[in-house]
Simulated scan of single mutants.
Amino acid sequence: MIFNWAAFTAAEPELARTVEDRFGQFTHHVLATLRKDGAPRTTGIEVRFLNGELWLGMMPNSLKALDLRRDPRFALQANPGVGTEMAGGDVRIAGRAVEVRDPETIALYVDEVEPPDPSAFHLFRVELTEVVRTYIEDEKYLAVQLWKPGQPLKKTRRA
């Protein structure tokens, strides 16, 4: 079962809004990919929520793009910000990044985002496998919301 951002939003609209808001607080976030030897690589990235999709745009032949071409699995964490507040909680997304090569889709993205070099970048569309939000609830509980495709939202709390 393939879930894009629109499908996730339809399944869990409140969590989707929270996640988008959390990512919207900062421009740069942290992407984890897998190197050739299987070791993790973390890099900064800007993300876009457009037209029902979560998009990852990257410079030509960047190591993260080459990693995703080889192995599409990734994890993405919203920038935790400054201090310890993390308004909206800690938000993470995992999934597969599918490179888009369709000129019409790329043109729509370029029109919206206006990348530095519209003729030279990699564009990936996200297929979700997991969305997680960790936050403080009622000033005394650590709450975790976990969503996976085809499953109901699971929430756990610890005192």
Score class of each variant (00 low, 15 high):
Ala32Thr: 15
Pro80Phe: 06
Ala143Thr: 11
Lys64Glu: 11
Arg125Trp: 00
Met58Ile: 01
Arg157Phe: 10
Glu14Cys: 02
Leu54Arg: 00
Pro72Ser: 14
Phe74Ser: 03
Thr134Val: 12
Asp67Arg: 09
Pro80Glu: 12
Gly52Asn: 00
Pro60Thr: 11
Trp5Cys: 00
Arg22Ala: 13
Gly24Gln: 08
Asn61Ala: 15
Arg41Phe: 04
Ala94Ile: 03
Pro152Gln: 07
Arg41Leu: 14
Arg157Ser: 13
Asp21Ile: 01
Pro103Phe: 09
Pro118Trp: 05
Thr42Leu: 12
Val113Ile: 13
Arg92Leu: 09
Pro13Asp: 06
Arg17Met: 10
Gly57Arg: 01
Leu54Met: 09
Val110Asn: 04
Ala87Gln: 13
Arg158Asn: 13
Leu50Asp: 02
Ile93Trp: 01
Ala107Arg: 14
Trp55His: 01
Phe124Pro: 01
Ala87Val: 15
Ala94Cys: 10
Arg22Tyr: 07
Arg48Gln: 05
Leu146Met: 10
Phe124Tyr: 12
Asn51Asp: 10
Ala107Ile: 06
Tyr135Gln: 09
Gly52Ala: 00
Lys148His: 08
Trp5Val: 00
Leu31Glu: 05
Gly81Val: 09
Phe121Val: 08
Ala97Val: 05
Val132Ser: 05
Ala94Thr: 11
Asn79Phe: 10
Met59Arg: 14
His28Ser: 08
Ala94Pro: 02
Lys154Ala: 14
Trp55Gly: 00
Ala16Trp: 01
Phe124Thr: 02
Lys36Asp: 15
Arg70Met: 10
Ala16Val: 03
Leu146Cys: 03
Val110His: 03
Thr43Met: 04
Asn61Ile: 07
Asp138Gln: 14
Ala97Ile: 04
Ala120Ile: 02
Arg92Thr: 12
Thr42Val: 14
Phe49Ile: 00
Arg69Ser: 05
His122Ile: 02
Asp90Met: 12
Asp21Leu: 08
